[in-house]
């Protein structure tokens, strides 16, 4: 009998208005519309240039679409008017790969360091924030001038690499902070208790647990580098990276080649995301396989 009142509360016939799933507050509709508009504004322009890149030879920079062909892609590949795009592509990808690896390793180490207070940690932290927010072009010029003073030629794999790291590393470490807040110190203590050396603890416990977060850092590192412009401008030396190539094209080229380049570079970005997400899925599969296999 004492249960009766609680049975009552689920009775839909109760006079008090209860919110059913179909009955959402008015703010839901306002915000849903805002969200839809935001997504539209986010994707609309990009999709329009992807479409426009498939015009034929008569194509212009605005709608309407004139014909359909791969003419501008061909044009892009031929490099007739587009400069050394292929070389820039290759350099950008190599540079981004380099930056990614270094960012992941260094951010992981710094993230581990920052889990505990140590003397001087605040200085390192503010230095990192400073590096993150310093105007990119200023830093680029400083690095360029510094190299000039030392008589070392600037190059994409030396000065530009360093310049990009000064931006991707703080970013990666901030992501590491968020990731590591979920890393419970008890796990490492348990590993130590069971006789693991620090190296074994890192390899067998910390790294596997942090793996998804590290993939996220890698993804950030790659994108930030692949798209980096301000810091690279004065440090890349004689050979351009892709954003620098695109930048010079935006100033000179006024044909849909530009759009074709946009389409291609987006496809590359998506391939990279695809590979990364694939890696995450694969990692999880391996764990899943381990738990269902072995029978």
């Amino acid at each position: 009998m004492t249960n009766a009142p609680s049975v009552q509360t689920v009775n839909p016939a109760r006079p008090r208005k209860r919110r059913s799933s179909g009955d959402r507050p008015w703010t839901f509709y306002v915000l849903a519309s805002l969200f839809a508009l935001y997504v539209l504004a986010l994707y609309g322009p990009m999709i329009s240039i992807y479409i426009l890149s498939f015009q034929d030879v008569r194509g212009g920079l605005v709608f309407p679409m004139r014909g359909f062909s791969f003419y501008w892609f061909n044009e892009l590949v031929m490099q007739t008017r587009a400069g050394d795009v292929a070389g820039a592509f290759k350099r950008s990808i190599c540079l981004a790969a380099l930056v990614t690896v270094i960012t992941v390793v260094f951010s992981f180490m710094a993230g581990m360091a920052f889990r505990r207070r140590f003397r001087g940690d605040t200085i390192v932290f503010y230095m990192m924030i400073g590096s993150l927010v310093a105007p990119g072009l200023v830093l680029g010029i400083g690095i360029g001038l510094g190299f000039q003073m030392l008589g070392i030629p600037t190059n994409w794999y030396t000065s530009a690499l360093g310049a990009q790291l000064s931006w991707t590393l703080p970013f990666g470490i901030l992501v590491m902070f968020a990731v590591m807040s979920r890393l419970n110190g008890n796990w490492e203590e348990a590993a130590r208790d069971l006789g693991a050396t620090p190296a074994q603890t890192t390899r067998l416990v910390v790294l596997p647990i942090l793996a998804p977060g590290l993939v996220a850092v890698a993804l950030f590192g790659f994108t930030l580098s692949y798209d980096e412009f301000a810091r690279t401008l004065q440090t890349a030396g004689s050979q351009n990276t892709l954003p620098l190539e695109i930048w010079s094209m935006t100033l000179n080229v006024t044909s849909p080649v530009l759009y074709a380049l946009g389409t291609v570079s987006t496809i590359v970005s998506f391939v990279i995301i695809g590979i990364s997400l694939g890696m995450i899925v694969l990692l999880q599969r391996r764990i899943a396989a381990r738990k269902s296999g072995n029978q």
């Binding site: 008890n186 796990w187 203590e189 348990a190 590993a191 208790d193 006789g195 693991a196 381990r290 072995n294």
Partner: peptide
Amino acid sequence: AMMFQSYALFPHLSVRDNVAFSLRV
């Protein structure tokens, strides 16, 4: 040997691998 509060079992390892951990290292 310590049994930790809320156990601190390694979340990425199976029960078998958790138990075998000390032998493995």
